[in-house]
Write a protein that binds this DNA or RNA. Structure first.
Length: 228
DNA sequence: ACATTAAATTCGA
DNA sequence: TCGAATTTAATGT
Protein backbone atom coordinates (compact mmCIF):
# COMPACT_ATOMS: atom_id res chain seq x y z
CA UNK A 1 0.00 0.00 0.00
CA UNK A 2 1.49 3.27 -1.09
CA UNK A 3 0.72 6.56 0.65
CA UNK A 4 -1.61 8.86 -1.28
CA UNK A 5 0.70 11.86 -1.17
CA UNK A 6 3.67 9.77 -2.24
CA UNK A 7 1.71 8.36 -5.15
CA UNK A 8 0.82 11.88 -6.25
CA UNK A 9 4.44 12.88 -6.07
CA UNK A 10 5.81 10.03 -8.15
CA UNK A 11 2.92 9.62 -10.60
CA UNK A 12 1.57 12.89 -11.93
CA UNK A 13 -1.10 11.01 -13.93
CA UNK A 14 -2.57 9.53 -10.77
CA UNK A 15 -3.72 12.95 -9.62
CA UNK A 16 -6.48 13.08 -12.18
CA UNK A 17 -7.75 9.55 -11.57
CA UNK A 18 -11.22 8.87 -10.26
CA UNK A 19 -11.19 7.90 -6.56
CA UNK A 20 -11.89 4.19 -7.19
CA UNK A 21 -9.06 4.01 -9.72
CA UNK A 22 -6.71 5.94 -7.48
CA UNK A 23 -7.29 3.52 -4.63
CA UNK A 24 -6.62 0.51 -6.77
CA UNK A 25 -3.34 1.99 -7.99
CA UNK A 26 -2.42 2.77 -4.41
CA UNK A 27 -2.99 -0.87 -3.49
CA UNK A 28 -1.16 -2.44 -6.44
CA UNK A 29 1.84 -0.24 -7.07
CA UNK A 30 5.21 -1.47 -5.85
CA UNK A 31 8.66 0.07 -5.83
CA UNK A 32 11.97 -1.56 -6.62
CA UNK A 33 15.54 -0.32 -6.59
CA UNK A 34 18.25 -1.10 -9.10
CA UNK A 35 22.00 -0.47 -8.70
CA UNK A 36 23.86 1.51 -11.35
CA UNK A 37 24.63 -0.51 -14.44
CA UNK A 38 21.78 -2.99 -13.96
CA UNK A 39 20.03 -4.18 -17.06
CA UNK A 40 16.44 -3.94 -15.90
CA UNK A 41 15.01 -5.59 -18.95
CA UNK A 42 16.66 -7.10 -22.00
CA UNK A 43 15.51 -7.23 -25.57
CA UNK A 44 13.09 -10.11 -26.05
CA UNK A 45 12.22 -10.44 -22.38
CA UNK A 46 8.81 -10.05 -20.90
CA UNK A 47 8.62 -7.30 -18.35
CA UNK A 48 4.96 -7.04 -17.53
CA UNK A 49 4.95 -3.73 -15.75
CA UNK A 50 4.25 -0.19 -16.59
CA UNK A 51 7.10 1.63 -14.89
CA UNK A 52 7.82 5.10 -13.61
CA UNK A 53 11.23 6.42 -12.63
CA UNK A 54 11.07 7.62 -9.03
CA UNK A 55 14.75 8.50 -8.74
CA UNK A 56 17.68 7.92 -11.05
CA UNK A 57 18.27 7.69 -14.77
CA UNK A 58 17.63 5.02 -17.38
CA UNK A 59 18.40 4.56 -21.00
CA UNK A 60 16.37 2.62 -23.54
CA UNK A 61 18.65 1.25 -26.19
CA UNK A 62 18.54 -1.12 -29.08
CA UNK A 63 21.20 -2.92 -31.05
CA UNK A 64 21.25 -1.85 -34.67
CA UNK A 65 21.84 -4.41 -37.42
CA UNK A 66 25.50 -3.43 -37.56
CA UNK A 67 25.78 -4.14 -33.85
CA UNK A 68 26.00 -0.54 -32.77
CA UNK A 69 24.15 0.47 -29.61
CA UNK A 70 21.58 3.14 -30.34
CA UNK A 71 19.98 5.15 -27.58
CA UNK A 72 16.23 5.36 -28.11
CA UNK A 73 15.48 7.54 -25.15
CA UNK A 74 16.89 8.77 -21.89
CA UNK A 75 14.42 8.46 -19.05
CA UNK A 76 14.79 10.23 -15.73
CA UNK A 77 12.73 10.84 -12.63
CA UNK A 78 9.11 11.59 -13.39
CA UNK A 79 8.77 9.65 -16.62
CA UNK A 80 6.53 6.62 -17.20
CA UNK A 81 7.21 4.13 -19.93
CA UNK A 82 6.45 0.72 -21.39
CA UNK A 83 2.79 1.22 -22.38
CA UNK A 84 3.51 0.15 -25.94
CA UNK A 85 4.68 -3.35 -25.13
CA UNK A 86 2.00 -3.78 -22.46
CA UNK A 87 -0.85 -2.90 -24.76
CA UNK A 88 0.48 -5.19 -27.45
CA UNK A 89 1.36 -7.95 -24.99
CA UNK A 90 4.71 -8.56 -26.63
CA UNK A 91 8.29 -8.82 -25.45
CA UNK A 92 10.39 -5.69 -25.10
CA UNK A 93 11.97 -4.43 -28.26
CA UNK A 94 14.84 -2.76 -26.44
CA UNK A 95 17.10 -2.99 -23.41
CA UNK A 96 16.50 -0.84 -20.38
CA UNK A 97 19.66 -0.07 -18.44
CA UNK A 98 20.09 1.94 -15.26
CA UNK A 99 22.79 4.57 -15.80
CA UNK A 100 22.84 5.19 -12.07
CA UNK A 101 21.12 3.81 -8.98
CA UNK A 102 17.46 3.98 -9.82
CA UNK A 103 14.14 3.40 -8.11
CA UNK A 104 11.19 2.33 -10.23
CA UNK A 105 7.53 2.41 -9.35
CA UNK A 106 5.85 -0.57 -10.99
CA UNK A 107 2.27 -1.21 -11.97
CA UNK A 108 1.52 -4.78 -13.00
CA UNK A 109 -0.03 -5.61 -16.35
CA UNK A 110 -3.39 -6.57 -14.93
CA UNK A 111 -3.86 -3.30 -13.08
CA UNK A 112 -2.65 -1.34 -16.06
CA UNK A 113 -5.21 -2.95 -18.34
CA UNK A 114 -7.91 -2.55 -15.72
CA UNK A 115 -7.14 1.17 -15.54
CA UNK A 116 -7.28 1.40 -19.27
CA UNK A 117 -10.79 -0.08 -19.27
CA UNK A 118 -12.22 1.38 -16.09
CA UNK A 119 -10.93 4.90 -15.83
CA UNK A 120 -11.93 7.69 -18.17
CA UNK A 121 -8.96 9.83 -17.24
CA UNK A 122 -6.27 7.22 -17.78
CA UNK A 123 -6.66 6.50 -21.51
CA UNK A 124 -6.79 10.22 -22.14
CA UNK A 125 -3.52 10.62 -20.36
CA UNK A 126 -2.01 7.72 -22.31
CA UNK A 127 -2.89 9.18 -25.67
CA UNK A 128 -1.05 12.37 -24.83
CA UNK A 129 1.91 10.42 -23.53
CA UNK A 130 2.18 8.11 -26.54
CA UNK A 131 1.89 11.00 -28.92
CA UNK A 132 4.62 12.86 -27.13
CA UNK A 133 6.92 9.89 -27.11
CA UNK A 134 6.40 9.35 -30.80
CA UNK A 135 7.69 12.86 -31.30
CA UNK A 136 10.64 12.00 -29.09
CA UNK A 137 11.60 8.97 -31.12
CA UNK A 138 11.57 11.02 -34.27
CA UNK A 139 13.76 13.61 -32.60
CA UNK A 140 16.09 10.89 -31.34
CA UNK A 141 16.59 9.48 -34.82
CA UNK A 142 17.73 12.95 -35.75
CA UNK A 143 20.21 13.05 -32.94
CA UNK A 144 21.89 10.03 -34.39
CA UNK A 145 21.98 11.45 -37.89
CA UNK A 146 23.27 14.79 -36.91
CA UNK A 147 26.98 15.26 -37.26
CA UNK A 148 27.45 18.38 -35.19
CA UNK A 149 28.02 17.30 -31.62
CA UNK A 150 26.74 20.44 -29.93
CA UNK A 151 23.33 20.03 -31.55
CA UNK A 152 23.27 16.40 -30.57
CA UNK A 153 23.87 17.24 -26.95
CA UNK A 154 21.34 20.08 -27.10
CA UNK A 155 18.71 17.75 -28.51
CA UNK A 156 19.40 15.05 -25.97
CA UNK A 157 18.97 17.65 -23.24
CA UNK A 158 15.80 19.02 -24.77
CA UNK A 159 14.27 15.54 -24.66
CA UNK A 160 14.90 15.39 -20.94
CA UNK A 161 13.02 18.57 -20.15
CA UNK A 162 9.97 17.81 -22.27
CA UNK A 163 7.18 19.39 -20.17
CA UNK A 164 4.56 16.86 -21.26
CA UNK A 165 6.58 13.85 -20.20
CA UNK A 166 8.03 15.60 -17.17
CA UNK A 167 5.33 17.97 -15.92
CA UNK A 168 6.97 18.35 -12.53
CA UNK A 169 10.46 19.08 -13.75
CA UNK A 170 11.96 22.42 -12.87
CA UNK A 171 14.73 24.02 -14.88
CA UNK A 172 17.41 22.04 -13.05
CA UNK A 173 18.45 18.70 -14.50
CA UNK A 174 20.27 16.25 -12.31
CA UNK A 175 22.64 14.76 -14.84
CA UNK A 176 26.40 14.44 -15.17
CA UNK A 177 28.24 15.18 -18.38
CA UNK A 178 29.23 11.52 -18.54
CA UNK A 179 25.56 10.50 -18.53
CA UNK A 180 24.62 13.21 -20.97
CA UNK A 181 27.32 11.93 -23.30
CA UNK A 182 25.84 8.45 -23.17
CA UNK A 183 22.39 9.75 -24.05
CA UNK A 184 23.68 11.93 -26.86
CA UNK A 185 26.00 9.26 -28.18
CA UNK A 186 29.19 11.24 -27.69
CA UNK A 187 32.19 10.87 -25.44
CA UNK A 188 32.34 12.58 -22.08
CA UNK A 189 34.93 15.16 -23.15
CA UNK A 190 32.85 15.96 -26.22
CA UNK A 191 29.77 16.41 -24.07
CA UNK A 192 31.84 18.70 -21.87
CA UNK A 193 32.78 20.91 -24.83
CA UNK A 194 29.19 21.02 -26.03
CA UNK A 195 27.93 21.98 -22.58
CA UNK A 196 30.52 24.70 -22.36
CA UNK A 197 29.52 26.06 -25.72
CA UNK A 198 25.82 26.04 -24.82
CA UNK A 199 26.68 27.81 -21.61
CA UNK A 200 28.53 30.55 -23.46
CA UNK A 201 25.46 31.02 -25.63
CA UNK A 202 23.42 31.53 -22.48
CA UNK A 203 21.23 28.48 -23.13
CA UNK A 204 22.16 26.74 -19.89
CA UNK A 205 24.38 26.88 -16.86
CA UNK A 206 26.73 24.01 -16.10
CA UNK A 207 26.93 22.96 -12.49
CA UNK A 208 28.64 20.19 -10.62
CA UNK A 209 26.55 17.10 -11.24
CA UNK A 210 23.81 18.91 -13.08
CA UNK A 211 22.65 21.51 -15.54
CA UNK A 212 20.25 24.41 -15.22
CA UNK A 213 18.30 25.29 -18.32
CA UNK A 214 18.20 29.04 -18.88
CA UNK A 215 16.49 29.26 -22.23
CA UNK A 216 14.34 26.27 -23.10
CA UNK A 217 13.11 27.68 -26.39
CA UNK A 218 16.58 28.22 -27.71
CA UNK A 219 17.66 24.82 -26.48
CA UNK A 220 14.76 23.32 -28.41
CA UNK A 221 15.43 25.32 -31.52
CA UNK A 222 19.11 24.54 -31.41
CA UNK A 223 20.23 23.11 -34.71
CA UNK A 224 16.63 22.85 -35.90
CA UNK A 225 16.10 20.66 -38.95
CA UNK A 226 18.54 21.38 -41.64
CA UNK A 227 18.36 18.57 -44.11
CA UNK A 228 17.03 15.07 -43.86
C1' DA B 1 44.99 10.57 -20.38
C1' DC B 2 45.98 13.87 -16.78
C1' DA B 3 45.13 17.87 -13.70
C1' DT B 4 41.82 20.33 -11.08
C1' DT B 5 37.93 21.09 -8.27
C1' DA B 6 33.59 19.72 -5.86
C1' DA B 7 31.35 16.75 -2.99
C1' DA B 8 30.88 12.82 0.15
C1' DT B 9 32.77 10.20 3.76
C1' DT B 10 35.57 9.12 7.58
C1' DC B 11 37.48 9.93 11.84
C1' DG B 12 39.13 12.17 16.09
C1' DA B 13 37.98 15.11 19.38
C1' DT C 1 28.17 16.70 16.52
C1' DC C 2 31.73 19.61 14.51
C1' DG C 3 35.26 20.15 11.27
C1' DA C 4 39.62 18.72 9.39
C1' DA C 5 41.56 15.07 6.60
C1' DT C 6 40.95 11.73 3.16
C1' DT C 7 38.70 9.51 -0.69
C1' DT C 8 35.68 9.46 -4.53
C1' DA C 9 33.27 11.66 -8.30
C1' DA C 10 32.80 15.15 -11.82
C1' DT C 11 34.75 18.46 -14.69
C1' DG C 12 38.15 20.95 -17.71
C1' DT C 13 41.74 20.68 -21.07
Amino acid sequence: MIEADRLCRIAHWARSLEPHAFERVQAEMIERRYPAGTTICEFGERFDYWAGVTTGLLTMRALSRTGKEVTLAGIHAGAWFGEGTLLKKIARQYDIVALRPTTLALLDLETFLWLFENSAAFPRYLVVQINERLGQFIAQVEIDRRLDTTSRVARALALLVNPTLYPDAGDYLDITQEELGQLAGVSRPTANQAVKQLQELGVLRAEYGGITIRDLDRLRAFGEDREL
